[in-house]
Every structure is written in structure tokens, then in C-alpha cells.
Simulated assay, not measured.
Amino acid sequence: MNSNTPSQLLLSRLEINLDEVPIEQLDHYIAVENFLTDEEELPRDADNLKKVQKYLEAFHHICEVEDWKRAIAISSIRIFFNEELHNQLFSWGYYPELAELYNKLLNTPSPELNTTFLYGLGNLHYAKGDYRQAIDFYDKCLKESQGIKDFQTVGAALNSLGLSHFRLGGYDKAINCFLQRLVIAWENNDYQGEGAALNNLGLLYSTQGKYRKAIKYQNRSREILHIIGYRSGEGNALGRVIAS
């Protein structure tokens, strides 16, 4: 058996010792080992979900015994394109499976991780076009991240809240979120965050027909992103200026 496959490497990382497992949890840990040692070759036309099914099965068994450290390890395994499993599910569009994964992980005792999963649920609903539900999760993420002074996540949550309100036509609320995002960026020397907030303000004002204001914000965004060498963001800002 190849011990260098992703599933074998993950099993080694989990360091499960069946001799130390409580008897009432033994079946679940045995199931995890069985799924991760199963190297059955899948058909060439197997869909992407089938390719990661054994990891999801192992994840669910680990969650049944509330072994959150190992559950997080499984959810973050990198199998394809160097993407963590939960991000890969998002990229592939397997939203029900991803929602189930995130909702289970919300039981973890770590506030830092909870903000990550709340933000992930917000992104999931945003991608589905369910902006009101996205706002609910982003708002919860914002409050928790403020409580633990995780200002990087605070900034991300404010930006995503602003975009969600923007999608619903709540321009005043969106402006308020982007301005708060701008302040957080200034306070933490987050130039990329500052550029993103300015760019989004420009986009919003352009949508409202306030073109002079839009150009002002997006020119400033382009200048900042150029200074820090963030070419992708700079291109987006430049595109908005031209469109305005």
C-alpha cells in the first residue's frame, strides 16, 4: 500500500491510537481508519464529489465524537490544486456539503475558528445570491471577531457586509461598511484592505451616478495598490475608473 497518498498522509497526521480510544467511540475511529486506508481506484469519469467522499465520511465520523482538532485537520487537507478541502468544495460548487461541514465545525470551542466558519457560511450564501442570509452570517462573524480583536477578519467581514448590502440596494449601509473598513485598514497599516475599501466605494458611487466621486476613490485605490505591487487589484481599480 502506498503510504504517501493524501489519505495515508492524513491518517498519519491524525495520530489515532485505537488502544486509547473510549470503547463507546471505537466504531467511529475504526470507520475513519477504514475510509482513509481505502485506496480503491475510482473510474475516470467519477465526479469531483466522489473523489473526496471518503474524506467527508471520515470527517462526519470524527464530528460524531466531537474530536474537533481532528475534524479541522480533515477539513483543511489539501488534495487538489493545493486547496484546502472546504475551499475546494466551494470552488466546485458543492454548497450543501460545504454548509453541512461548516455547521458542524461551528461547535468547535475556538472563537478564532468560529469566525472563520461563520465567514465561510457568509461566502457560501453570497455565492448563492442569498444576500440576506449572507448578511446574517457576516454580521455574526463581525461581532465575534471584534470580541477577540481579530482586526483582519473584522475588515474582511465589513467588506463582505458592504458588498451584500450593495447587492440588495442598501447603498447607505454599504457606504457605512466600506468606510468602517477603511478606518480599520488605516489603523492597522493594511494597504491592500485600504485599496479594496476605496475601490468598493468608487464602485458604489459609480452605480449611483456620482462619477467624480467614484473616480476620486478609485484613482486613490489604484495608487495604493500600485505602490504595494498588488497588480490584480490595481487592474480592477483601473477598470472601474475607465468604466466611470
Rank of each mutant, 00 (worst) to 15 (best):
N34R: 13
L161D: 07
L225E: 06
Q25L: 02
F178L: 04
V241W: 04
E15Y: 06
G147C: 04
N103D: 04
A58R: 00
L161K: 12
D190W: 00
A71F: 04
C141M: 09
L42M: 06
S160M: 14
E39T: 13
S75M: 02
F81V: 06
N176T: 10
I23A: 15
L203W: 11
L85P: 08
W68D: 03
K143M: 13
L204H: 10
I74F: 02
Y95S: 08
N48Q: 10
L89M: 07
L113N: 11
S221A: 15
L201K: 01
L203C: 15
D190L: 03
Y102F: 10
T5L: 03
I242D: 01
L36V: 00
G120K: 05
K149D: 09
I30T: 01
L49G: 05
R212S: 14
A31F: 01
L168V: 10
L121V: 03
L56F: 05
P43A: 04
G202V: 15
N159S: 13
L18T: 00
V154T: 06
A71I: 06
T115I: 10
I77F: 07
R222V: 11
L225D: 05
Q53D: 12
S91Y: 11
L89N: 04
N48C: 00
K128E: 15
C177M: 11
T153N: 12
A71L: 05
L113P: 00
E15S: 13
H86L: 03
G229V: 01
T115Q: 13
Y230R: 07
A134T: 15
K143C: 06
I215E: 03
I175V: 15
N159H: 14
G239D: 13
D190F: 02
D130M: 06
R222E: 12
H61A: 07
G202Q: 03
L158Q: 08
F137E: 02
Q208M: 11
E15H: 14
L168Y: 14
R220E: 13
G169Q: 01
V21C: 02
E84R: 10
Y211R: 14
P111F: 02
D67G: 03
D38S: 00
S3R: 13
T153Y: 11
F166C: 09
L182W: 07
V154H: 05
A58P: 00
S232E: 15
N107K: 14
K149A: 10
E83G: 00
Q218I: 14
V21M: 07
E194N: 11
Q146S: 10
A58Y: 05
Y138E: 06
R44P: 04
E39P: 10
A46G: 02
K210S: 06
S164E: 05
G202S: 03
L18K: 02
I135V: 15
S91V: 14
L42E: 01
K149S: 12
T207S: 14
D38Y: 03
L179P: 00
Y94L: 00
A127H: 09
N48W: 10
Y126C: 07
E187G: 07
Q208A: 09
F90P: 04
K51T: 11
E187V: 08
G129C: 12
L118N: 09
F90G: 01
